[in-house]
Design a protein around this nucleic acid. Structure first.
Length: 393
DNA sequence: CCTCCACAGGAAGCGCAGGAGT
DNA sequence: ACTCCTGCGCTTCCTGTGGAGG
């Protein structure tokens, strides 16, 4: 069923499917009242013309960080003041220059055109601050900024130099580790306040899902047991609320496809498989070409079985590094690409293992010499299909 | 016990692109 | 606009290692 038909179908279990989207901001954010309250208390001074402290927000994906901040921004904008919040995703604005330009563009329309030097934009920043303005720059996925040290230094310096007004940073990150390779000075100034978002528990996920079901699905279209299952499966995985919502959405789509007017456990089970393949496909498709070919070679051999399967030391389903490299070379030639050296192929393997796409283990007794045994992290048929199609699109 | 196998993974260095400095 | 520098992806070379085989 195509997307349009889904929305036009009168017998859909959905009432408003966008409620299940990860970008949807619900009226109430359950289990985040405390954090929202805390953040608001820290930034409230800017509404009274005082500089607020820098805040760093931590939490794994799908713990409601971005959603909470957006909620706060909605509230913040309702109040008339000299203060303003700027939300930037650092995946897009990933350098000092881009961040500064983006923020200053909101005050100085002439910056719309590209090509101004950093010093010019810095001057504009000082001017903005001298007009007694208070800015809170929200840097989502702050770890993506390449020259973060530099950016923080520039911003704190602007604060000192202007004397009036104030600029504070609200950083959001899902990695605790990114601070490690930061200059101690920028670390301490960024870290004035730290707020942690813990992953949701099964019960919390249940309540969140119930709330969205109420808004997004037809009345009684989702069985309680299906909600519970989706929550349990998610908590088992990682507690990522986005995963739970995706599960429910896919389950709804499956129910629609089957022309049922309710969603039950079996639909959620089936949705889980689809979401899993979705996730695998996404990681594979963003892989660089050579990684893909390597993975493809492994999938192909996994389907055909290892030449060395009869050796004592070979556990079921594993391949030897050498034969995989040969297959990789064959695949490259087929695609008219130059195969990379063995040394580099090993690096590809390491990367693939990091992503959980392959499982490797050192060889032991039964095999001559020392080699690596390789196995796919997922079902070979699925991986083969995904890699295969990605080469011909 | 020695040698060979089948690799692992470190070090050096190369060509290139893009960014910084002037 | 120019050069200079740096980081990245990669090759080549090299030493190390655990078990098989004679």
């Amino acid at each position: 069923m195509t997307n349009f038909e889904k929305f036009l179908d009168k017998n859909s279990v959905f009432k408003n499917i966008s409620v299940l989207s990860p970008h949807y901001i619900p009226k109430i954010l359950p289990y985040r009242e405390k954090q929202i309250e805390e953040i608001m208390s820290y930034i409230a001074p800017t509404l009274k013309n005082q500089k607020s402290r820098n805040i760093l927000i931590y939490g794994k994906t799908g713990t409601g960080k971005t959603c909470s901040v957006k909620k706060i921004m909605e509230e913040f904008e309702k109040i008339q003041s000299n203060a303003r919040m700027h939300y930037l995703n650092c995946r897009v604005y990933n350098s000092k220059y881009r961040v500064l330009q983006k923020v200053m563009k909101d005050y100085w329309p002439e910056l719309e055109k590209a090509g101004f030097g950093l010093p010019f934009i810095y001057e504009k920043l000082l001017e903005t601050l001298k007009q007694q303005r208070y800015l809170i720059v929200v840097l989502d996925e702050i770890d993506m900024v390449k020259d973060l040290d530099d950016l923080i230094y520039t911003l704190t310096r602007a604060n000192d130099e202007s004397g009036t007004g104030g600029l504070s940073i609200m950083g959001i990150s899902n990695k605790l580790s990114f601070k490690e390779n930061l200059d101690p000075r920028s670390k301490s100034s960024l870290n004035e306040v730290e707020i942690v978002f813990q992953p949701y528990t099964t019960e919390q996920l249940q309540k969140i899902l119930e709330q969205r079901v109420e808004e997004g699905f037809q009345h009684n279209a989702v069985k309680q047991s299906a909600v519970n299952l989706a929550a349990a499966l998610t908590a088992q995985e990682n507690g990522d609320a986005r995963y739970a919502l995706k599960l429910l959405m896919r389950a709804g789509e499956i129910a629609d496809e089957k022309k049922k007017n309710f969603v039950d456990d079996s639909d959620v089970e089936e949705a889980r498989k689809r979401v899993e393949t979705d996730i695998i496909a996404e990681t594979i498709n963003t892989l660089p070409e050579m990684h893909k070919i390597t993975l493809h070679a492994i999938a192909k051999l996994s389907l055909n079985g290892s030449k060395y399967a009869r050796l004592d030391g070979m556990a079921e389903g594993f391949l030897m590094s050498g034969e995989v490299y040969e297959e990789y070379e064959r695949c490259c030639r087929q695609l008219r690409k130059k195969p990379r050296s063995l040394r580099w192929y090993k690096e590809y393997l390491n990367d693939l293992e990091m992503l959980g796409l392959v499982i490797t283990t050192p060889s032991s007794k039964g095999i001559r010499g020392q080699t690596t045994l390789i196995k796919l992290g997922h079902e070979p048929e699925i991986v083969y299909k995904i890699t295969n199609t990605s080469f011909f699109c």
